[in-house]
């Protein structure tokens, strides 16, 4: 068995922030359960679009993998995306008071999974870059399938055929196809 630091054992015995976020803004999974560890990180981004408001994870792996997940979640909570993207594996290992060399490769995956969750959040945002503005009055739109404009109160959807934002009707006002 690997020799673990007190900090690793403490996080392993009392892991913080375990769980899933049902309506997560980003989800990232890394690893391989056959010969390594498997981690899934969930993040919730604050209204400012920058701050990591909540982090949760599920981890299959050894004591080090669980401690790493717990530590990463603690390090990331309340930080901005930019700050978190600068996290490295070495920083996590250092915070944990060191990790055995054979655990650095297979178990120190927390940062990778968290970064993947952030990438997921960013890429999801790029799919709907215009979602924020109503095409009729420039009012703000909430993120949903059928969006009600908060200013003009029109119901707006994204046409599945042409991708334009149009008023929610039976057919698209731009391409004319059935919605």
């Amino acid at each position: 068995m690997a020799q673990y630091s007190e900090k690793v054992m403490e996080h392993f015995m009392n892991p913080r922030n375990v769980g899933e976020i049902a309506d997560a803004d980003g989800v990232g999974t890394v690893g391989n359960p056959v010969c390594g560890d498997l981690m899934t990180f969930y993040i919730k981004i604050a209204e400012d679009g920058k701050t990591i408001q909540d982090v949760k994870y599920k981890t299959f792996g050894c004591g080090a993998a669980i401690a790493v997940s717990s530590m990463v979640s603690e390090m990331a909570k309340g930080k901005t995306i930019d700050e978190v993207l600068k996290f490295t594996r070495d920083m996590v290992a250092q915070e944990l008071g060191g990790l055995p060399p054979q655990k650095m490769h297979c178990s120190n995956l927390g940062v990778d999974a968290l970064h993947k969750a952030i990438e997921d959040y960013i890429s999801k945002k790029k799919i709907h870059p215009v979602l924020c503005k109503c095409p009729f009055c420039d009012g703000e739109l909430p993120c949903a399938e059928i969006m009600e404009c908060q200013k003009c109160e029109k119901r707006i959807v994204k046409c599945p055929h042409c991708g334009n934002l149009v008023e929610y009707k039976e057919t698209c006002s731009i391409c004319g196809k059935k919605m």
């Binding site: 068995m1 299959f60 050894c62 004591g63």
Partner: peptide
């Protein structure tokens, strides 16, 4: 199923 033995071993050891 669903667990990695080292984690169980460590927890049992404690």
């Amino acid at each position: 199923r669903g667990v990695e033995s080292e984690a169980v071993l460590l927890a049992l050891d404690s």
